[in-house]
Design a binder for these strands. Structure first.
Lengths: 221, 221
DNA sequence: TGTACATCAGTGAACGCGCGTTCACTGATGTAC
DNA sequence: TGTACATCAGTGAACGCGCGTTCACTGATGTAC
């Protein structure tokens, strides 16, 4: 229960909450984590934060704006996780590319409420410019990594780095959406999602002429 | 408006509807297509079908059961589309594998309401055995195709067909979810989703030692 | 240090609304004879 | 062919509920002087 932490805003000090904006964000995360984005309501978030039902409208235009704030923070966290996984990019670029995908899966699993706010709410990012910018920054990390890897290939075989970045995003997103959900809609998988992803990335990079190692064994399959 | 077709059940013939079950399925599809699965309500489906709010409960236990029926039919349609794309499997297996992915994207785009009922409702397929069976049948087609393709590789390089099938599913699902949505949540993509998918499948199969052709150009990128 | 005041975050009651589901009922259908 | 009857799909009113949002208000805060 993140929101019960003192910084969460529950230390009511009288008439004014003092940190309602943060408390609402955390209440929204708690509600999404519990029952999914469609079960989130402004009224219940207000209740969780300990304020009256009208109070949230001092901070957010409507319910969607509150979700958008959560999604924005989610993209920022995802970008941080991807940046950590990429590191300085000085390790083996193939390993680093796979590590980006793994970081995506780890994010989906360890922050399912953020992930749901970002990808399962049908929100249009272009309606919220800061959200669109944060989304672009996160994808930009994939793009930069792909650029570095593509640069290591001979020019005549060099694939568009945008395409490579889109491929690893789509693959990671597909695996996360199908097999890393925290709820009962998760599809069963007879192996670790990380291993499934790593095998795909390795085969993909082999197809590009990189990663000449042996075929990866599908552990547990 | 599929449901306004005579077969849709709008030809009320008096007290009894005559085909309410079908009419409710089609009303549900129309509502999901219009505003997404979270906007669907039993009451509005009943209204669309021209019956009183209690009538649907003669045919479906609750709202989720109605969604599950729609999802079931969706998996059946998806299986048909995949079977058509695979054909008799006698064409070039590499082409056929890519065609399966393309069929998945085409399904997501041409039947967005079915797709949403199947993948965006957080329904647990194991709660509805016929739904789970239909889902398994659709995936089984991918599995069979992967089996055939794997069989064409030398035994020492042969990857698990289950893994191959999961890879093409996850990749197709990721691309469909991110780039083939019918709503404003669709992410922009500077190329056709089909081309993005085809390039990924070709590179993947090259990584497996198949499809020795030249690198696919990412058209439009 | 003290006072007056502007600001604005949060109150709480109210609005109209639509929902899921139940239930005693009605009446159309079709079957048995 | 006709009649009695069982079946059950659909009615419509009702229930309790919770929602999003508005609005005149209250009172805490902090700033100007």
């Amino acid at each position: 229960m993140t929101w019960s932490h003192p910084r969460g805003g529950f230390e009511r000090r009288g008439y004014h909450h003092g940190n309602l904006r943060e408390a609402l964000v955390e209440a929204t995360l708690a509600l999404i984590a519990e029952k999914g984005p469609s079960a989130f309501t402004v009224a219940e978030a207000a209740r969780l934060a300990g304020v009256s039902p009208g109070a949230p409208y001092r901070h957010f235009r409507d319910a969607e704006a509150l979700i958008a704030e959560v999604a924005l923070r989610g993209f920022e966290r995802l970008a941080e996780a991807l940046a950590r996984a990429w590191g300085d990019g000085r390790s083996d670029p193939v390993d680093a590319f796979a590590a980006l995908g793994r970081a995506y899966l780890t994010f989906a699993r360890s922050e399912p409420a953020y992930y749901a706010a970002m990808f399962e709410t049908r929100i249009a990012v272009e309606d919220y410019p800061p959200l669109a910018a944060a989304s672009d920054r996160a994808f930009g990390l994939l793009r930069d990594a792909a650029e570095r890897i593509a640069a290591s290939l001979p020019a005549r075989n060099r694939p568009p780095s945008l395409m490579m970045a889109l491929h690893v995003w789509a693959l990671s997103h597909g695996i996360a959406s199908l097999f890393c959900r925290p709820d009962r809609a998760r599809r069963p998988l007879p192996m670790a999602p990380e291993d499934l992803l790593e095998a795909a990335v390795l085969l993909y990079l082999q197809g590009l002429g990189l990663a000449g190692g042996p075929l990866p064994a599908a552990k547990g399959a």
